[in-house]
Amino acid sequence: MPKLYDYVLSGSCYKVRLLLGMLGIAHETQAVDFFPGREHKRPEFLALNPLGQLPVLEDDGLVLRDAQAILCHLANKHDTSGNWLPRDDRFGPVMLWLSFAGGELMAISGARMIAMLNYPGDLVALQAKARTALRLLDDHLADRAQAGGLWLVGPTPTIADIATFPYVALSHDAGIGHEDYPAINLWQRQVRKLPGFVGMPGVPDYF
């Protein structure tokens, strides 16, 4: 059975929890005391992931780090529909948005750690980067909506949507509201309606 090393307030772990829920994959979780205990920087955890980051997934002897890699692995192994990780023309664009979710969008994560948990860093600079990333996402989703599309790529939800949703939804914790991003808000409503959707603390329930 897959085992997720999990922290309840981590948006990156939430990506994995979301897909586990939507694919209905039986799994176990092990809580890691990320804050305040910094358990992810202790030797036992570094043996699992030398980068000292969450999440980590163990599955049949495979130890995987990086939320995006874990989403690919789970969809590759467990999704019988083939839509969550499509192997046709959608593959490239799905990878593009996965990379965005693990890259530019993580400015929200950085800003959130500063605003909420008093981590060191430049809050204003990260908020500016986060707004740039949200603007780009909102424009893309507006174009998609114009063409009648609900999802980031193609006619069905993919792991690109799952990887992107958590930090968008958690942006309030980083001091960034959703009022400037109407296309993102429409899309968030669609994600919330998916069977197997689970929330997390900090993700607003009022959509």
Partner: peptide, 12 residues
């Protein structure tokens, strides 16, 4: 984690 989950649900 249990207590943090509860508290961050209140935070928003």
């Amino acid at each position: 984690a249990f207590q943090q989950m509860i508290f961050v649900q209140d935070k928003i």
